[in-house]
């Protein structure tokens, strides 16, 4: 109780410093949150794209329907395969017309071959697995060609790896910046209260007693900064949603985790700073 009021007294004594502290924490977390938002949206997009990854086997015109059915049954039993669908020439034409709209007339019946579409189970859509499935399907003598957008799949995966690595690196960098800023804020508060602290020492206040208000100060600022950053990120997300593209927002758990992260940074920043500067007062 005493420490809370002490911490708040300290903040009231240096209001500008404290506001600066909270805002800088918020900015750091805002950058962090914005990046996180981009990251989860890329991830989401990747997942959606992955769901569409399929292996398509084009069939020779002369193939009889029994062989196709037998092959489909075989392929359907591959451990990687979720489901197999047959697309007849007519269906292929229909689909092409729908997709091409006004250019639909260029297609004539019989131009597009029949095919088997193979959908893979989730978790089985990485480039290696897709290629191995495609290679096995290619062995059927009536399969003319197998397509699975190999380059595309690989690119998607590379993009995903890059975003994950960049996310971690930037996240850690931003966290470090936030901790340094909080540390600097605490340092200024410690210096501003140097006389008070030295008198506390003199009359026999314990180290923990002297530290606690600073830790609580860091905690409060971290939480406030986290909440402020949340508002910023949420607003930015709304703007993007309104004028650009549909995005998803953090889940409630992730928001909570972000605020806890802010609190953690606040406490860590003050812990490091207080430990270092109290010794010199």
């Amino acid at each position: 109780m005493r420490s809370v009021s002490e911490a708040l007294t300290a903040s009231r004594r240096a209001p500008l410093l404290s506001i600066l502290g909270v805002v800088t924490i918020a900015f750091s977390l805002f950058a962090f949150g914005l990046f996180g938002l981009v990251a989860i949206n890329i991830r989401k997009a990747l997942e959606q794209v992955e769901e569409r990854v399929e292996v398509r086997a084009f069939l020779e015109d002369s193939t009889d329907i029994e062989s196709v059915a037998a092959a489909m049954k075989d392929i359907g039993e591959f451990p990687e395969v979720a489901r197999v669908e047959y697309v007849s020439k007519e269906q292929a034409l229909e689909r092409a017309r729908k997709e091409m709209g006004e250019f639909a007339d260029v297609f004539e019946a019989g131009v597009l071959p029949a095919s088997i579409e193979v959908y893979l189970r989730s978790g089985m859509r990485d480039p290696m697995t897709v290629k191995s499935v495609a290679d096995r399907i290619r062995t059927y003598h009536f399969v003319d060609d197998v397509r699975y957008g190999e380059e595309w799949v690989e690119k998607l995966y590379r993009l995903r790896t890059i975003t994950t690595v960049a996310g971690l690196a930037l996240g850690i960098a931003f966290a470090a910046v936030a901790i340094i800023i909080i540390g600097a804020t605490i340092r200024m508060t410690v210096l501003a209260r140097a006389k008070e602290i030295s008198i506390m020492r003199l009359v026999g206040a314990t180290d923990m007693f002297i530290r606690l208000p600073f830790l609580i100060d860091g905690l409060v600022k971290g939480v406030l900064g986290g909440l402020l950053a949340l508002v910023f990120v949420w607003a930015a997300n709304r703007v993007v949603n309104e004028y650009f593209i549909q995005t998803i927002f953090f889940s409630r758990e992730m928001v909570f985790l972000g605020v806890v992260g802010g609190a953690f940074m606040g406490v860590l920043g003050s812990l490091v700073s207080v430990g270092r500067h109290l010794r010199r007062v």
Binding site: L202, V203, G204, A205, T206
Partner: peptide, 12 residues
């Protein structure tokens, strides 16, 4: 220890 010193200073 730090704690002992704090206690001592309360009596000085």
């Amino acid at each position: 220890s730090g704690r002992e010193i704090s206690r001592l200073r309360r009596r000085i």
